[in-house]
Amino acid sequence: MIIEGKCWCYGANIDTDALAPMGSYQGENVLDGAKQCLRDVDPRFAKGVRENDIFVATENLGIGSSREAAPLFLKALGVRLILASSFARIFFRNCYNIGLPALICEQSPTINMGDKLIVDLDLGIIKNLTQDVSLSYEPIPEHLYNMVLSGGLLPYLKKQLSNEHN
């Protein structure tokens, strides 16, 4: 899996209330709710983010509630990859479960708003094209990577269930 895109960079402790404000998602129209993503942190984000963009944060990304709307909104807005120095555990699981790879990358703080990255998840390479440097990340456990390749836990389960029935 190769992802190439522009980075949106934020700091530490971006919580799930900031990503998916209370009441922004009632289980139906994800895109409508996603317009409120980070509204209190950076109102430009939801308007400006494009398909294939990369979301970057430093420490503790996704602290707070278990609400899956937080990564769902990012995905709905076009984000294809998340990098952070560290993640809250439920948010991390939720990302993979919805098919959005989340990489633990200690050098996240070196990335600047608008930098272009190319990431090859099969080879394990991140290149910051704007700064012309390579970055490293913690390898993704195999079962999580397989889940992402299937598009998330649901499609993964679907496949498994249909295999059982055949």
Binding site: E68, I90, R93, N94, N97, H143, L153, L157, L161
Partner: peptide, 18 residues
Amino acid sequence: IGIGSSDLVGVLATGEIW
């Protein structure tokens, strides 16, 4: 433990979680 909705679906469907 607390989990998100997809993980919940996995549990509801299979009774298991990693």
